[in-house]
């Protein structure tokens, strides 16, 4: 098309641009509305779902964890605040705060024995023993959620993964790589010997002894000189199931 000169041509072009823009805006608005509608439908359905399965969510730990997963996918955090719709509907905010308080309690009570590092499994077991009267069962997933909420307190509660196990740390000690490796090694029998550390990790003697001494000083390890072979064993209460026994005796 031959470009038409003059003011008329310019005006036509401007008008056409306006038309396009309008059309574009309309399309965008339609899409947004549709999206908004879909989201609100989704939200209301999620709410319906939550309302309908309220008891399951409160009582069944597996169901609860799946529900959390679903919420996370659509960007809803039922624990974000204790006020608001979710907390009112489900009361799960309170549930996790209660767990949090009990977890802090258990960690403090067992600290003299395990040096502030406790197996998640053990923690969960003690927690369940303590909550025998409560209606809701508690899973490891619940513990992890409650602990993640404790982080806002800045008190150094953290979950660390050592080998196959998850350990909950309630002291601000920073575990170095060497210590982690020893803890991982100890998971097989609950203890290690200097010799074993040297052999399995190919460390020189000094390095193994240094790391073990630190773990002793931190209260994370205990020595055992009583074995027939005369070799000193370093036991780690945080990886042995014994911690729950001692803890439940003293709690």
């Amino acid at each position: 098309m031959r470009r038409r000169p003059g003011i008329g041509g310019l005006q036509t072009a401007a008008a056409a641009r306006d038309q396009y823009r309008l059309l574009g805006e309309n399309v965008a608005k339609l899409r947004t509305d549709l999206m908004k509608e879909q989201l609100s439908t989704f939200r209301s359905q999620l709410e319906d779902f939550a309302r309908k399965h309220k008891n399951d969510i409160r009582k069944n730990p597996v169901f609860r964890s799946q529900f959390h997963e679903m919420c996370a996918k659509v960007g809803v955090d039922p624990l974000a605040s204790n006020k608001g719709f979710w907390a009112e509907l489900l009361g799960i905010g309170d549930f996790y705060y209660e767990l949090g308080v009990q977890i802090v309690d258990i960690c403090l009570a067992t600290r003299p024995h395990n040096g502030g590092l406790i197996n998640l499994e053990e923690l969960c077991k003690i927690l369940s023993q303590r909550r025998k009267g409560a209606r809701e069962a508690v899973s490891e997933d619940d513990c992890l959620r409650a602990i993640s909420k404790l982080k806002v307190l800045g008190s150094g509660f953290e979950v660390i993964t050592v080998g196959k196990r998850k350990l909950v740390r309630s002291v601000p000690t920073e575990l170095k790589k060497d210590h982690n490796e020893i803890l991982e090694l100890s998971q097989a029998q609950g203890f290690v010997t200097v010799e074993e550390v040297e052999r399995r990790l190919s460390w020189p003697t000094g390095r193994a002894i240094d790391a073990l001494d630190t773990l002793l000083d931190e209260g994370l390890a205990m020595i055992d000189d009583g074995h027939r072979d005369g070799k000193r064993r370093y036991w780690f209460p945080c990886v042995s199931s014994i911690s729950s026994f001692v803890a439940s005796d003293t709690l």
């Binding site: 002793l216 205990m222 020595i223 055992d224 014994i242 026994f245 001692v246 005796d249």
Partner: peptide, 14 residues
């Protein structure tokens, strides 16, 4: 008590 079955409790801790 259960600590009675945990070997290191039989060695005086340093």
């Amino acid at each position: 008590p259960h600590f009675f079955n945990y070997p290191p409790y039989f060695t005086l801790q340093p």
